[in-house]
Design a protein around this nucleic acid. Structure first.
Length: 422
RNA sequence: GCCCGAGUAGUGUAGCCUGGUAACAUAUGGGACUGUGGAUCCUCUGUGCCGGGUUCAAAUCCCGGUUCGGGCCCCA
């Protein structure tokens, strides 16, 4: 027997229905915000990803050499490919450029709940704008996407790497120190952080204040700590403007400042954020993003860029955990030929209804009426048409409503009109 | 990549400790029902993750692999 490879999955029609629902719903939200869809190849030159994230990520990639000796890799995420595409052929497009995408990504990780080796992401990148209103819209869009698919309880946590850098500078921390400290901040391991800060020569008092600032949501507390760094003060003021717009213009209130969001990556700058679904417990992060610098690394003229990615699988898990009812697979009409002489007419009716936009199926197993009705019921069909010789003599059929349970004799020519009415 | 647990019809489970004919529910197919569903009854088909070892005999015990789940690592 063959099985799917480790960390991959088959999706049944039932599961695909959920996935398509989310995809279509999100695409509608993206387009309503003025975004255009983009698609890039499933694999890229390996170098694209090592340039972005360093040689060490090769361990977590599906990388291979093709028959021409090219070093390639299945994409582990979509930001780098989209920015590559921008640099390669979209640099002269009018700004701002707003791009969204859906795509399968691949990582050689140990699979866990909600985490697979092949997984789907939805996301977007905004190129060529760095105003507060653009940043606020990005946050609002990420939030709206998740709300629109039906999630009730999600929360945005907003951090800022410019402010974190200013604090590092003020505490006289070197680049090498930051490499040790950032992962601890990311994981909110504040006890370990305190020890490491002391090892890096930070006084106990400063360390405690720093750790308190990392956990606070009070702007004033942050401001007093960074008061002597003009860049950081400016960034904090910009952040207040963004949050003001988010609240007063986009009417999104489920957010908080959380400076310990650092996203652990070199190329993020300034605003960073994550969105959680508390129902998921430990593995609750649904979305991550922020502003970053990649264009110049890929050889393009530097422009502001920002974006985010949403994990499809966790979004589905979160919806299921919240008890969300997905729109069910729907078959409008099921046609039952009473005997084999009725098959031809049944097919004609099916074809006619299909051309009018109804989803229609008919019995192809030549089952009895009882069994066919049972089958129709198990498929949640709303209407059944029974084609039998008695009615057919008068060019009529029986139209049965499966919900109410009653039925009526309808002329063949009037079926369509009758169905449209209800 | 490391540690732990699990894997029995399509699905959900029992049996495993203490080796001896693989079981139950549900779903699917057929029928009771030759023109009317969700009920009931009958019935067919279908099951030990893979490989090796111990044994007269392995679902059961042992070893290796594999997949899933949990915990690390990682999480762009």
């Amino acid at each position: 027997m063959f099985q799917v490879p480790r960390g991959t999955r088959d999706f049944t029609p039932e599961e695909m229905e959920k996935r398509r629902y989310i995809e279509q719903n999100m695409a509608a939200t993206f387009t309503s915000f003025g975004y255009g869809e983009i698609q890039t190849p499933t694999f890229e030159n390996l170098e694209l990803f090592t340039a972005k994230s360093g040689e060490s990520i090769v361990n977590e990639l599906y990388a291979f050499t093709d028959k021409g000796g090219r070093e390639l890799a299945l994409r582990p995420e979509l930001t780098a490919p989209v920015i590559r595409c921008y640099v390669e052929r979209l640099q002269m497009e009018p700004k701002p450029l707003k791009l969204f995408y859906f795509g399968n990504c691949y990582r050689y990780d140990r699979p866990q709940k909600g985490r697979y080796r092949e997984f789907q992401q939805a996301g977007c990148e905004v190129i060529g704008v760095e105003t507060s209103e653009a940043a606020a819209e990005l946050l609002a869009l990420a939030f709206t996407l998740l709300k629109n698919v039906g999630l009730k309880n999600v929360r945005i946590n907003i951090g800022n790497l410019t402010i974190i850098s200013a604090i590092f500078k003020r505490l006289n921390l070197l680049k090498d120190d930051q490499k040790i400290l950032l992962p601890l901040i990311d994981k909110s391991q504040f006890d370990d952080l305190k020890v490491s800060l002391r090892d890096c020569g930070v006084s106990g008092k400063d360390a405690e204040t720093f750790i308190r600032v990392l956990q606070t949501s009070e702007v004033n507390e942050i401001r007093s700590f960074i008061a002597d760094d003009p860049d950081a003060v400016k960034e904090l003021a910009a952040m207040e403007t963004i949050l003001g717009l988010l609240k007063n213009a986009f009417h999104v209130t489920e957010y908080g400042i959380k400076l310990s969001i650092v996203r652990g990556l070199d190329y993020y700058k300034g605003l960073v954020f994550e969105i959680d679904a508390p129902v998921l417990g430990a593995e609750k992060q649904l979305c991550g993003g922020g502003s970053y610098e990649l264009v110049s690394l890929f050889g393009g003229t530097e422009v502001p860029t920002s974006g985010f990615a949403i994990g499809f699988d966790r979004t589905i898990l979160a919806l299921e955990a919240e008890g969300f009812i997905f729109p069910p697979l729907k078959l409008d009409v099921y046609i039952i030929p009473v005997n084999q002489d009725m098959i031809c007419t049944s097919i004609e009716i099916a074809q006619q209804l299909r051309s009018q936009g109804f989803s229609v199926d008919f019995d192809q197993l030549r089952r009895g009426i009882g069994k066919s009705l049972k089958y129709a019921d198990s498929k949640h069909v709303e209407k059944v048409i029974i084609v039998g010789p008695k009615e057919l003599e008068k060019k009529t059929v029986t139209l049965r409503d499966m919900k109410i349970g009653n039925q009526e004799i309808v002329s063949i020519t009037e079926i369509c009109a009758k169905l449209k009415k209800t």
